[in-house]
Amino acid sequence: MNTSWFVVLSAFIFCIGAAGVLTRRSPLVILLCLELMLNAGNLALIAFSRMLGNQDGQVFALIVMVVAACEVVIGLGIIVAMYRRRLPIDVDAMSELRG
């Protein structure tokens, strides 16, 4: 398969994720859509790594996976903290950063 197929597929998945981040209200689903966008970036990195025959892109994708895992852990921690304080699980209602 040509590299351009993979790159266009990754652009499509990235845009689906971007639409989800813009339209959904639950922070859980917004985190899932962020995962979609990060994974689309990973797919593009690996496609270019295959195109150039160079494995540096795969190492980059691996580091992106680590960063995504960290982001998920912190995001879910914030959601659990919101739930414990009985705040509504809705990003529109969370309009202030007061602790």
Binding site: M1, N2, T3, S4, R50, M51, L52, G53
Partner: peptide, 10 residues
Amino acid sequence: GALDTTGERI
């Protein structure tokens, strides 16, 4: 140009 190839030989 390389976008329309499957990539380098690996």
